[in-house]
Design a protein around this nucleic acid. Structure first.
Lengths: 128, 128
DNA sequence: ATATACTCTGTATATATGTACGGAGTCAAA
DNA sequence: TTTGACTCCGTACATATATACAGAGTATAT
């Protein structure tokens, strides 16, 4: 039984076009097309896509994942460095969001205290 | 003295092309072009762009800002709802990032405990 | 043998937010 | 009056991550 592209996509819960996109990006290898019939996707490729998806969940971009896949059998130290950078990244983003949260809460509080619906403290704050 | 597009851009610390982009998007109105000479940007337009930029800092997208600008003199309630949605949004993103942070920290900890540089717990975790 | 579903290929489109460029027009200053 | 800087306009490109589509081939089920 041939493991066609749609079976791969379905088993991973992703779109067929996404598989093709990864092929074009060089993240996975496209199986050879037989003279007759459809391409057969080996388990190793399916695993590789699963790896990609899990890496995305850790916040890595496809380019970074490309790097991870390439240093697959390389020293743990390099991988560690990538992850540390990513962690700092995440923490920076969280800080930015916290600031944003504070700002939004501040204006919302003013809105809640506001009795006159014709005037909006939020809009006024933006007009400054 | 004509307030040309480059003066506007410079005074706001943004790119000329960004101003044009906002014009194309319909966020601001392009001043009429005089028979001779350059377009003259009124203060109201400059203020409007400043409003846009401040709104972006609060995390609103240009489309949302479009909405804010349209309900400019409208009830505070609607504005408030937008801001609340945005706040929830931000908080959701922060939660996602926190989960990400935990995951990264976990694998990094394993990497640090790892003596053998040939095997990487992070990669192994992704391979699962 | 025919209908229906799937694959393959190349290319276009989507999203959000801009940035860059070429060629023609215009302005300001020396 | 020439030079250098700026504007205007339309269009293309950039980023990241996909998704969609058309037309031809192939497989499967009845």
């Amino acid at each position: 039984m041939v493991n066609t592209i749609s079976k791969v996509a379905k088993s991973l819960g992703i779109n067929i076009e996404t598989v093709r996109f990864y092929e074009r990006k060089g993240l996975i290898q496209q199986p050879n097309k037989p003279k007759i019939g459809y391409r057969d996707y080996p388990k190793s490729t399916v695993d590789r896509i699963a790896f990609i998806k899990r890496s995305q969940e850790l916040g890595f971009t496809l380019n970074e994942i490309q790097g991870l896949l390439n240093l697959n059998d390389n020293p743990c130290k390099q991988v560690q460095e990538m992850a540390e950078t990513k962690l700092l990244n995440v923490q920076q983003k969280m800080q930015d969001l916290q600031q944003l949260e504070r700002a939004l809460k501040t204006v919302l509080l003013q809105c809640e205290k506001n009795a006159n619906d014709e005037i909006c403290p939020l809009i006024d704050a933006l007009k400054k």
